[in-house]
Amino acid sequence: MAARTGLARKAAEGAKGARWCLGDAYEPHIRVQDVRRSNGKKSRPKYQGRELHLLSDLEVRAFRHFEWEPTVVGIEEQYYLEIEDTVRIAAEAGASHPLVIGTDDPFEMTTDLVIYHQCDRGERRMARSIKYSKDVELGLAETPVERRKVAHRLEKLEIERRYWTERNVNWALLTERELSEERQRNIEWLLSSSLDGARPDGFWQHAADLVCEALVAGDGARVVDLQRELDADGILGEADFTECLRHLCATRQVAFDMEQRFSLLRPVSDFAFAAAPLKLVG
């Protein structure tokens, strides 16, 4: 991958690094097509009107994790770190700054994800580096060459940590141990939910009322038993029941443990209602 010196898509930083999320105007400093190799599949999911450039399966998992959080209002990937600052920080820390291959020129650094979230004091951001544990834990390195590579990555992470600390931004390292693959699958399945707009007006609201009434009355049963009962009585088809419950979960009106795969075989007690009144559009 070539360095983007002179062509860097830099995010303009304000005082102490504060700035608002740029939304669809944001451009990542590294794009999928810039990278020859990556840890797993490279991915470009749609988000807030633009393509995200995620360079590993784990970055996709982390993105889904934060996308699902209700307080998150924006996510920016492959976030450029001001090279003048990273070079200075590396010198202060006694760390080796990444170099452009075959030269003594410093290589521009990035942070995998910068997440903007809404809190009582307004919009704040946090920075997250996403790495597989084998790439950042010396104890997992099996050869001297691997240990040197891990040690160099740890130096880069320390530069990142200090960079964000100077800007009063919370930084942390996430590995696959903190990012559940099952949660990712649930999130992706829920977010792909789409109710059939060809149904008559009020159909889905009525279906939602039926599903919720069944869940309330069916404590102790399995969800699939309620689904089959409504279908057998000619009240609501099995496919419509499933799609309606899926939509209720996707819109956070019904909740379940996202660390376990969504299944109609689960007991009704695994699902909980939101405090707000249930409402579907369509």
Score class of each variant (00 low, 15 high):
T103R: 04
L138Y: 06
R4Y: 07
R121G: 07
G94V: 04
T251E: 12
S180Q: 07
L157Q: 11
G74F: 04
R125P: 04
M258T: 02
L52C: 12
F63G: 04
Q33E: 14
S192T: 11
E59L: 11
N168D: 13
I30R: 15
K46L: 13
S56P: 08
P45S: 05
V32C: 12
P45Y: 04
A198Q: 12
V224N: 07
Q205N: 13
R36I: 05
S56Q: 10
R44A: 08
T165C: 03
L226E: 08
E123K: 07
A217V: 03
Q253Y: 04
R31V: 09
A221Y: 10
H206G: 10
I159W: 03
I75V: 14
R177G: 11
W164S: 04
Q227M: 15
H247T: 15
L195M: 09
N170G: 00
L55D: 02
E142M: 11
M126P: 01
F256E: 06
Q260A: 12
A198N: 12
L157N: 14
R261H: 11
E188D: 13
L113G: 02
G197P: 00
E69S: 10
R61S: 07
A91P: 00
D104I: 03
L179D: 01
G220W: 05
M258A: 00
V114I: 08
L157R: 06
K131N: 12
A25T: 10
L174H: 14
P277E: 08
R125V: 05
L113K: 04
L226M: 10
A127D: 04
R183N: 04
I30Q: 07
D231N: 12
M109A: 05
E59S: 06
S56L: 08
K131P: 02
A151K: 15
L190T: 09
R147T: 06
L52T: 07
H117Y: 15
K134T: 10
V100E: 15
I130K: 05
W20L: 15
Q118A: 15
P98R: 08
E229S: 13
L230K: 00
L58N: 08
F63N: 02
T71Y: 01
R50W: 08
A275S: 13
E238K: 14
L173H: 04
L264H: 06
H97K: 02
W204R: 08
E51Q: 14
R199Q: 15
D257E: 14
L140E: 11
E178N: 06
H117V: 01
L173E: 03
A91G: 02
R162D: 00
W20I: 10
A250I: 10
K149M: 11
R31P: 02
T175C: 09
G14K: 06
E178V: 03
A214H: 05
R177F: 04
E176S: 03
R121H: 10
L52V: 09
E51L: 14
K131E: 11
Y116V: 01
T111E: 05
R222E: 14
L157H: 07
S193H: 11
H247P: 00
P98F: 08
A275L: 09
A15E: 14
S193Q: 12
S192H: 14
L264E: 05
L174N: 01
L154W: 05
A255V: 00
T242M: 06
P277I: 09
D135M: 02
R19N: 10
Y132T: 07
L215V: 03
L265D: 14
